[in-house]
């Protein structure tokens, strides 16, 4: 697994792809919200694994977002199986939001 600071070029491509997945409540993508923790692209086993979190436990849209990640990954990587794992460690904080995410939330 690679955390988001040490991604391979292929994993970085996936990271960019995940910017198409939005949190429907705040209308900001999950990458800029800082919800993606780790990505693993395994060419031999044909799997893509994403470890991510949500901004709050009990988020009513939680599994819709996870489902969205899985669908987007599999639709863009034919023949690959996407595994999306939810973690609460480390706990998400607003400091994890990127500069682009901050600007989107503040409406700039």
């Amino acid at each position: 697994m690679s955390d988001i600071k040490n991604l391979t070029p292929k994993e970085n491509e996936i990271y960019q792809l995940l910017k198409t997945v939005m949190d429907p409540e705040v209308n900001v993508n999950i990458v800029d919200l800082g919800l993606i923790y780790e990505i693993e692209y395994n060419e031999e086993q044909k799997t893509i694994k994403v470890i991510m979190t949500l901004s709050t436990r009990g988020c009513p849209l939680g599994d819709t977002i996870l489902q969205n990640v899985q669908v987007v990954l599999e639709a863009n990587h034919t023949g690959y199986k996407a595994v999306v794992e939810l973690t609460w460690e480390p706990q998400w904080t607003p400091e994890m939001i990127t500069e682009d995410g901050r600007m989107a939330i503040e409406g700039f």
């Binding site: 009990g58 988020c59 009513p60 939680g62 599994d63 939810l86």
Partner: peptide, 11 residues
């Protein structure tokens, strides 16, 4: 079912 996911619990 992953802990904290709640849409599946919704009525």
């Amino acid at each position: 079912m992953q802990a904290g996911l709640s849409t599946k619990n919704a009525p």
